[in-house]
Structures are given as structure tokens and as C-alpha cells.
């Protein structure tokens, strides 16, 4: 049980650190505003989603 928890924490930390560093790494020149035109699903966390900002604002208004 303890082994599992330690193992789990190690994995989660590795992921967290990689995620953090990835988001700190600047995007290369000319790629700052890249967007794919994805309209398939509504994962609002997804960066490719075109209505990302709009959906957020609507949710906030309701709340």
C-alpha cells in the first residue's frame, strides 16, 4: 500500500514538473498564435478550441 502511494506521488510529481516546465518554455518565433481550427468537441481546456474564451465568459455570467 505504502509502495503504491509513494509510486503514485513520484509519477504525479514528474507529470506536474514536466507540465510546469513545458508551460514556462517559450514558444519558438512565429508560432505564438498558432491555432488549429478544431470544432469537434467542447473540451474547454483544449487550446485548439476556437470558442474557448467565449464559453468561459458565458459560464461566468450565469454564475
Amino acid at each position: 500500500m505504502i509502495k503504491a502511494i509513494i509510486y503514485f506521488i513520484i509519477l504525479a510529481v514528474i507529470y506536474g514538473v514536466l507540465y510546469y516546465f513545458n508551460h514556462k518554455t517559450p514558444k519558438p518565433e512565429g508560432c505564438e498564435n498558432l491555432r488549429s481550427s478544431c470544432e469537434g468537441c467542447n473540451i474547454t481546456s483544449c487550446m485548439a478550441h476556437p470558442n474557448n474564451d467565449r464559453l468561459f465568459k458565458e459560464e461566468n455570467k450565469n454564475a
Binding site: 468537441c41 467542447n42 473540451i43 474547454t44 481546456s45 464559453l55 468561459f56 459560464e59 461566468n60 454564475a63
Partner: peptide, 19 residues
């Protein structure tokens, strides 16, 4: 499943537990 992460991001991260 997109529903779960989608709702977490769009709703739960901004509203109280009951809502």
C-alpha cells in the same frame, strides 16, 4: 471522456461544491 474534464474546467473550477 471529454465530458468530465470539460465540466471540471468550465464549471467546477469556478463554482461552489453544491452547484
Amino acid at each position: 471522456n471529454c465530458i468530465i474534464l470539460g465540466r471540471a474546467e468550465a464549471f467546477a473550477s469556478k463554482n461552489g461544491p453544491l452547484a
